[in-house]
Design a protein around this nucleic acid. Structure first.
Length: 426
RNA sequence: GGUGGGGUACCGAAGCGGUCAAACGGGGCAGACUGUAAAUCUGUUGGCAUAGCCUUCGGAGGUUCGAAUCCUCCCCCCACCA
């Protein structure tokens, strides 16, 4: 068996682990699970750490389970009521679970015979159990005294302002029950999670011991932040999603390219499968020739390829090369259409450019690059607006059909990185 | 329930009758420098309009030529007391 914990440790992915996990994982192939919250149609970058946690587990020969919290997700929304709505939510949860599975397929192997990845939805067991059964069979194993002794709970109780709701207080029971069910159904003996999940994980381990007399384990990874203290996984345009419909491969790629030096090496460890030597080499390059940004490139390439495939990566790189490397003016309209397939775009009726043309201010507003006319004006006055790579010189500048590339496209740009393609239609 | 202190733009926080679209800091957005990095520096940051207008300072009324600033009532937070 490959030593999974060593792998985590080498990648700074190990925060804490219960006693005996190392031996447990070395002895035989095990089944390991991590929970994912299906609050959205798509996972975002925040889920990448747990995903990679499962990836390493599978590569080490263990069976990874992604548990979608379809049931706990329902609890998370207290405003829901009436059977009708609940039904809808269940369907939605199932839908999201399906979406999550398809995203996980880019990372995990669901086909391999020996240890295929699994997706489970806790709605399967939480959905049908009655309150009385739950309290009788599960609840009686929980000591309120012990639950209240947990640091996370104590803090909330001490803090009279926020307090803690019963729902939240009992969330640990549900998560523990998940572990128990996975232990029973899939022989799952290890739960992983973010360091904030430590309490819930150990509670689950206790439940498995009490109810089944079994031994289970927990492993946590650190929560990822970036060097500037900003939230990891947020770009200037918001969350970075794994779904290409929500975050294009180009944007995804760009997110990684723009990672600051201080984060690059850590991210390489977290999010790529490059080995120690390769990462050391890139770290070295970062110091010796930082302008090459070899680390960021390797990072962007590796992660984008894994998620979006070779074709997605190629498209992202093509667009990147055109935007940041070469000269856009040299490109034909077809090439532009191709390159910018990935960049935000809108359509404009050609007639709108007829006559005196159209004010750049209006274009900025309509494309969403500016939030108001004043904002558009300021951006232009500050020298931050370009049409077809040429800086707009004044707020009264207009654009006409002659300026369109082969009469088909206008390329708007605000700042260094935000592009918008306007396609002209008849 | 009682007493005292508060609610100001994205956030924090000044202002306490006109000169307030509202200091200052953070954040955001641009620009410069770089390496599509960080740090730093500069500009900008309610809306519309070529120095004017409109909507903002918890809510509703009122006083005044004029209110974020004063008065009344209401709502919400905080501190101490019970």
């Amino acid at each position: 068996m490959k030593n999974l914990l060593d792998e985590y440790r080498a990648r700074d992915l190990l925060q804490d682990a219960t006693e005996g996990v190392a031996e447990h994982l070395l002895e035989a192939p095990r089944t390991i699970y991590i929970g994912f919250d299906p609050t959205a149609r798509s996972l975002h970058l925040g889920s990448l750490v747990p995903i990679m946690g499962l990836v390493h587990a599978q590569r080490a020969g263990h069976t990874p389970i992604a548990l979608v919290g379809g049931g706990t997700g329902l609890i998370g929304d207290p405003s829901g009521k009436a059977a009708e709505r609940q039904l809808l939510t269940k369907e939605l949860a199932a839908e999201n679970a399906e979406g999550i599975r398809s995203q996980l397929e880019h990372f995990l192997d669901f086909e391999v015979k020996s240890n295929p990845a699994l997706v489970r939805n806790n709605l399967d067991w939480l959905g049908d159990i009655t309150l009385v059964d739950f309290l009788r069979d599960v609840g009686k194993h929980f000591s309120v005294n012990q639950m209240m002794a947990k640091e996370s709970v104590k803090r909330r109780i001490r803090d009279e302002e926020s307090g803690i709701s019963f729902t939240e207080f009992s969330y640990a029971l549900l998560q523990s029950y998940d572990f128990l069910e996975l232990y029973r159904r899939e022989g799952c003996t290890v739960q992983m999670g973010g360091s904030d999940q430590w309490g819930n994980i150990t509670t689950g381990i206790d439940l498995v011991r009490r109810m089944e007399g079994g031994r289970a384990f927990g492993v946590t990874y650190p929560l990822v932040t970036n060097a500037s203290g900003a939230k990891f996984g947020k770009s200037e345009t918001g969350n970075v999603w794994l779904d290409p419909a929500l975050t294009s491969p180009f944007r995804f790629y760009q997110y990684w390219i723009n990672v600051e030096d201080a984060d690059a090496v850590r991210y390489l460890k977290f999010f790529t499968l490059l080995d120690r030597d390769e990462i050391a080499e890139l770290a070295d390059a970062l110091v010796k020739e930082p302008h090459r940004r070899a680390a960021q490139r390797a990072l962007a390439e590796d992660v984008t390829r894994r998620l979006h495939g070779q074709a997605g990566l190629a498209a992202a790189e093509r667009a990147t090369k055109a935007l940041f490397g070469g000269d856009i003016e040299g490109l034909s309209a077809d090439e532009i259409a191709d390159v910018f397939a990935d960049v935000p775009s809108s359509e404009l009726v050609r007639e709108d450019l007829q006559g005196g043309g159209k004010l750049v201010i209006d274009l900025l507003l309509e494309s969403g690059l500016a939030s108001s006319r004043g904002d558009a004006r300021r951006s232009i006055e500050g020298g931050g607006v370009y049409v077809n790579s040429v800086r707009v010189q004044g707020i009264d500048v207009t654009v006409s059909t002659e300026e369109a590339i082969e009469g088909r496209f206008l390329l708007l740009r605000k700042g260094k990185k935000r592009y918008h393609l306007v396609a002209l239609t008849a």
